[in-house]
Design a protein around this nucleic acid. Structure first.
Lengths: 154, 154
DNA sequence: ACTATATAGTTCGATATCTAATCAAATGGA
DNA sequence: TCCATTTGATTAGATATCGAACTATATAGT
C-alpha cells in the first residue's frame, strides 16, 4: 500500500541505510508500545543482555555491547535502578567503576516483556517469509562490524 | 575487536532487530557528525527526497514516506524552514494543509551534504564486501513492508 | 615516587522523537 | 443544510540520545 520511496538509487548504500532506518523506527516504536510498565527497548535490551550473558557487568561494558555512549548508559542504568530492575555495587577491582546486577524484579520484568512481545513477533512472522528475512543477518553482521571498526579509528 | 553480542539466539528475529538497531545507531551518529551546518540525517533525508522526487509535498506525505509521526515532521519542516532550506505555502486544494517547496539554499545544502558524506561512504566501502552487504536489501524491503502493513492495522 | 595521561562515570545542555490533546477544515449522511 | 466524523497540522509534555565538559581513580614513564 505504502509505496515507500528508497531515497536513493535502488540497490545503493543509501537505500540500504534508508531501509534500516525505517525498520528501526517502525520496530522500536511498536516494541515500545508493547513493552509493559512504560519501559522501552533500550531498558529491555540491557536486562535481557544481563540475563543471557550474566550480570555484574560495568556500565561501560554495557555501553559497548549496545554501541551507545557512556552518558546514555548512565541514564539507562539509572532508570533501571529507579524501577528496581537492577542494583549496582562498587567494582572491587576498580574504584572508578561499578557493577550492575539483576534483581528478582529485573528477571520477572524480562519474563513479562518477552510474553508481551511474543504475540507481536508472531503476528509479524505470519506476514513475512521468515527465511528470506533472516537471510539478511550475515550481511548485517558484516556491515555492523565494519561500521564498528571504522568508528574505532576516531 | 568488538565481540558484540547478538542479544538473542543466533539467527533469530531478535538478533536481526538487534543488528538493525546497532547499525542504525552507528550510521546515524556517524552521518550526523559528518553533515554540514549542524544538520541531521532527518533533515538531509527530507531535502534529498524533495530533490529526487519533486517538491510541493505536504508534511503528511513526507511523514508517511519516512514513517515518522506528523508531529515529528512538523518539527523537521519547521527547522528546515528556519534555516531557509525549504519554504511552505498554503495548499490550494485543502485549507488545512500546506506544501513544502525547496529553496535554492536547500538544493545547495543537499550538494554540500552529499559531498561531505561521500568520503565516509567510500571509507566504509573499503571495509566491506559491497555485494554481500547490498544483498540484504530485498530482505529488508520485504520486512519493512510487513512492519508497515502491520502498523496500518492499528 | 611524581607527574602526565588515560579511563570510568556523571552532569549539562541541546535536540529528535514519541504520544496525547487540540484546533481547524473537509466530508458524508440524515 | 447541519451535524458528526475524519483528517492535516500544531502544541505540550516526556524521554532517549548525543557531544562536551567535568570529577575521580588508575596507569605508565621517567
Amino acid at each position: 500500500m505504502k509505496k515507500a520511496d528508497p531515497s536513493g538509487p535502488p540497490g545503493s548504500m543509501f537505500e540500504l541505510f534508508n531501509e534500516i532506518g525505517i525498520i528501526h523506527q517502525l520496530s522500536t516504536t511498536a516494541f515500545n508500545r508493547t513493552l509493559p510498565d512504560g519501559l522501552h527497548v533500550s531498558h529491555f535490551s540491557v536486562v535481557n543482555h544481563l540475563v543471557r550473558l550474566g550480570d555484574g557487568k560495568t556500565p561501560l561494558e554495557l555501553a559497548r555491547a549496545f554501541q551507545v555512549t557512556k552518558a546514555n548508559m548512565t541514564n539507562t542504568v539509572a532508570r533501571l535502578e529507579e524501577r528496581g530492575l537492577v542494583a549496582t555495587s562498587p567494582n572491587p577491582v576498580d574504584g572508578r567503576s561499578k557493577l550492575v546486577h539483576l534483581t528478582g524484579e529485573g528477571r520477572a520484568f524480562r519474563e513479562r516483556a518477552i510474553g508481551a512481545l511474543q504475540p507481536m513477533i508472531e503476528r509479524i512472522e505470519t506476514l513475512i517469509e521468515r527465511d528470506l528475512v533472516l537471510s539478511a543477518i550475515p550481511a548485517l553482521r558484516h556491515l555492523r562490524e565494519a561500521l564498528d571498526s571504522d568508528r574505532d579509528e576516531h
